[in-house]
Nucleic acid binder design. Structure first.
Lengths: 335, 335
DNA sequence: TCGAAAAATAAAAACGTTTCGATTTTGAAC
DNA sequence: GTTCAAAATCGAAACGTTTTTATTTTTCGA
């Protein structure tokens, strides 16, 4: 593989001249520039980005670190990040956080392979993030409670979302509303629950015992809950599943038992994943501003990259999306 | 930011000793090793991956280059790649191909920032790939007809898929089957069409004129086609949309016009995206072995990385997924 | 106690760039 | 033909590692 040195030799010119010529520095005469370029082409010279990065101490690349690179859930966020980064002339790479101590996450976070990182990966621990962050590696954390130097957070207001959903159901006349939480340790689920409680209190509705299902935000999880629930003698008025996947599982279980949604029981989810619109009945849910989250994160990152380290956390509002799975209940029927 | 030099100075030891100590080389005495590690910790030393990569001339990172990083479509492929890479101790990064001449694609492909690349991005031209590929940068191309040194291809047998679908419809008694193609230049669409033609010939069915809709594989595109089609005096027996998104758009348009699927007209798609299972009626489609595609690609890449450059192109089989949107037609009704 | 082998450490040369100060070349003005 | 500033080119150091070779220190048998 040809290097600048080879080009320099072949073109009978100094190494430094080649460097300058290749980058169109006006200090080199037009004629030599052309000669150098021609020789470079002939030798199939390709710049070595790594050497350049080492020398310039910048990579012009930012990274978004996701738990599972493959998740469809992330599409919009990535798009948001990418749009901003591209407009700044930066490159975006995405990486999965799997792999533990010597996984990609650590490599990217601590080994200066990128200029900044956006983290949306619950399995990367705070410690790793805090020690990695610094004046020359700002980190934006998404959906995470964490304050530290050079670490900035962007969060979706999950509590507000939980409140919106619950209030919506209450206003429709539902009273006995069950909340299905996600995996135990999920902050998101917990916050949505808080919103739920807040609304229930406001309406002084009989706060139903939280249905603590620890199945991990999956359709299967929701399905199992649905089966259990439909075996009980009495159904709640409505079920608030803390994400859409679970809500869809519920829907499936109920449909198999002949329980009609929303006539017999209303169901709402959270996230507004694409399928929510297509299931029967279409699912009422909460949209999280994904694209915005990505683009806000990227904007913060570039602020920090530009040397502005005084940045406040950002919290984004959610939006209730009403579809047919929630519906007015004849109030005379409710408790 | 502390470097090895700083650590060496502070620990009163040579630079090289620090390097050896940090990598647990047995040539350094246990006691000095501990001392060095301790000093490194105190100084918050972080290795500079770029410097290391430059020196070792390997990054232990492979890259998957996608057209649009955000596409949900890619999830499984990435997962396939990642699983293999992780098992080999390599890191995987993903990058979008947007950005033209000085975009990420070029940076990654030609500037030695990764050890190998998997490309699934129609907008990256062959030229770029061919010139980038070499003994120290093998490239795997997905769903692309391209043969060159150090470039290896993995493709899904789109023609077979088109054949499967069409044969399925024909066997159900449909005869007047319309094919809706995607954007003009798409090889995938073209191949699916060839499979369609092959099956139609075999059954000597009246090969319907191909419905050349150039709308770009989107739901909106399918919707428009659906509107146009339903305005015609006579409907075909079945429609083969060259991807699911368009099929879903069709479904929507037909449903608005009161055209029943599959009773009035059968619809099939291609790709087996997740929503296909949830639309009404659930969509018959063709599953592409995405995960397998990713993992096969990664395996080829590692073969090449190991110095084995004699690799044959791989073609993967598709699988027909029959759901309710296609259904037996009473043969007496057909032409 | 000596000296050689073994163990530990140190020194130096890369890797392929960028960049800055130094040097050479050019050519216009005298 | 000099002279001199401007223009062009060059040389060398540096970025932070790894790795090979050289040097110093330790160990230990005779």
């Amino acid at each position: 593989m040809a290097t600048m040195k080879d080009v320099a030799k072949a073109a009978n010119v100094a190494l430094s001249t080649v460097s300058l010529a290749l980058r169109n520095n006006p200090r080199v005469k037009e004629s030599t520039r052309r000669r150098v370029l021609e020789v470079a082409r002939q030798l199939q010279y390709r710049p070595n980005g790594i050497a350049r990065d080492l020398k310039t101490r910048r990579t012009e690349t930012i990274c978004i670190l996701l738990h599972d690179l493959g998740g469809p859930f992330y599409s919009e966020i990535i798009r948001g990040v990418q749009d901003i980064a591209t407009s700044k002339g930066y490159n975006t790479i995405a990486s999965g956080s799997l792999g533990g101590r010597n996984g990609s996450a650590v490599r990217l976070l601590s080994e200066r392979r990128v200029d900044g990182v956006i983290v949306l990966a619950p399995d990367v621990d705070d410690e790793t993030i805090v020690t990695a962050a610094g004046p020359d590696l700002p980190v934006i954390v998404l959906d995470r409670e964490l304050t530290a130097d050079y670490v900035y957070s962007v969060r979706v207001d999950n509590e507000q979302g939980g409140y919106q959903v619950t209030k919506h159901l209450l206003e429709l006349g539902h009273r006995r509303i069950v909340f299905i939480s996600g995996p135990a340790d999920t902050l998101d689920s917990e916050l949505r629950y808080r919103g739920y409680v807040k609304a229930m209190k406001e309406f002084s509705a009989p706060e139903s015992k939280r249905f603590d299902y620890m199945g991990g935000f999956t359709e299967e999880g929701g399905y199992v809950v649905g089966k259990v629930m439909s075996a009980q003698p009495i159904l709640p008025d409505a079920v608030f599943a803390s994400n859409d996947e679970m809500a869809i599982g519920l829907l499936k279980a109920f449909s198999e038992k002949g329980i009609r949604v929303p006539d017999d029981v209303a169901i709402v989810g959270f996230d507004n994943i694409r399928i929510a619109e297509y299931v029967q009945p279409p699912l009422t849910t909460v949209r999280q501003p994904m694209y915005e989250m990505g683009s806000v994160a990227a904007q913060l990152l570039f602020q920090a990259l530009a040397g502005n380290f005084e940045l406040q956390p950002v919290r984004l509002a959610t939006e209730l999306v009403v579809r047919q799975s929630s519906q007015r209940r004849d109030t005379s029927v409710t408790a």
